[in-house]
Computed example of a mutant assay.
Amino acid sequence: MKRLLEVNDLQVHFHSKKQNIYAVRGVSFHVNKGEVLAIVGESGSGKSVTAKSIMKLLPEKTCSIPEGSILFNGDEIITMKKKQLSKIRGAKIGMVFQDPMTSLNPTMKVGDQIAEGLIVHKGYSKKLAHEKAIEIISLVGIPDPIYCCTTYPHQLSGGMRQRVAIAMALICEPDLLIADEPTTALDVTIQAQILDLLKDLQEKMGMAIILITHDLGVVARFSDRVNIMYAGKIVESGTKNEIFYNPKHPYTIGLLESVPHLDLEKNQQLTVIEGTPPDLHDPPKGCAFTSRCPFAMEVCDLYQPNKTILSSTHHSVCWLMDQRAPKVDDIQYNDFHQ
């Protein structure tokens, strides 16, 4: 399968007068044409920073990419000038942000905002662009699309604003859609509708999707492959089935164990991953998960673990994969209860 996006050894640093934050620390992954890749992790793990790096949307004054490569259709994103980037943003890569109210212009009518992409990238006339905007608004499931075009974002509900944001991202039929926690601010019923909509549009348009989320239920329903991210690194990667049914990294196991179950007994507490992520202005010398890991060994605190290839699609970055470590099969989910 042809690779649409390749990210290799990406490093992203944020700078201030007092310190540097090493937000992304050597991330590598790829996205094939037409697939859904989920990037999962706690808040602060580097998911959104990685996503914004792909479109070079990070602030230039306070942020740098000292190392790494981002290839989109074989073209290097990192070294692109603004004029080249403007031909890709919105046209070839679309993005849906967490909160549509902050990504939509409150002073512009919805129809004008959606049509703008076609006018800028495709050279459409204003009339034709508005006709296409009505079509895409209808496609994303908004009733009375003609009326919707005449409204301002604040006049719509949260679910409708998110559909408008999706319509804006899809209007130019991009090859890749980056959805950064697109259902976080929505109630459960609307979440399901938005996810079904994205999946349906993805299949109709044949585009690839990078789904940024911390919701494993969304991942199970929507993704083909999964990257588990922690403290600026990808610690495990695999197909959906490999991650859910054969997890190898203790962090992945902890995330899965912390998901509420319908058969939870009365007064039974949910499992939690004790502790907090490390401060990335001074990253740990060894594995960043060591202080929270119930299976940590002395070597974990001293040295970075190597990537262990478990299959052509599955890898884990953990010292437990070393042949001298305790057998991974001996690890049980209920160890996180201890």
Rank of each mutant, 00 (worst) to 15 (best):
I146Q: 15
I146Y: 11
C148P: 01
C149H: 01
T150G: 05
T150C: 02
T151H: 12
T151E: 05
H154S: 09
Q155V: 05
L156W: 14
G158M: 09
M160H: 09
M160F: 14
R161T: 03
Q162L: 12
R163N: 06
A165S: 15
A165D: 02
A167F: 04
M168E: 02
C172D: 02
E173Q: 05
E173H: 12
L176A: 05
L176Q: 04
I178C: 04
A179G: 08
D180M: 08
D180F: 06
P182M: 13
T184C: 06
T184L: 08
A185M: 09
A185W: 01
L186H: 09
D187K: 12
D187H: 10
I190M: 13
Q191E: 09
A192Y: 10
I194L: 05
D196Q: 13
L197R: 02
L198G: 00
L198R: 03
D200L: 10
Q202Y: 08
K204W: 06
G206H: 04
M207Q: 07
I209V: 15
I210V: 14
L211S: 01
L216R: 10
L216I: 07
R221Y: 14
R221I: 00
F222V: 11
S223A: 15
D224G: 05
R225M: 08
V226G: 08
M229E: 10
Y230F: 15
I234T: 07
I234Y: 10
V235W: 05
E236F: 03
K240P: 00
E242W: 12
F244E: 01
F244I: 05
N246R: 14
N246H: 15
K248P: 01
H249N: 14
P250N: 10
P250L: 08
P250D: 06
Y251I: 04
T252G: 02
T252D: 04
G254I: 06
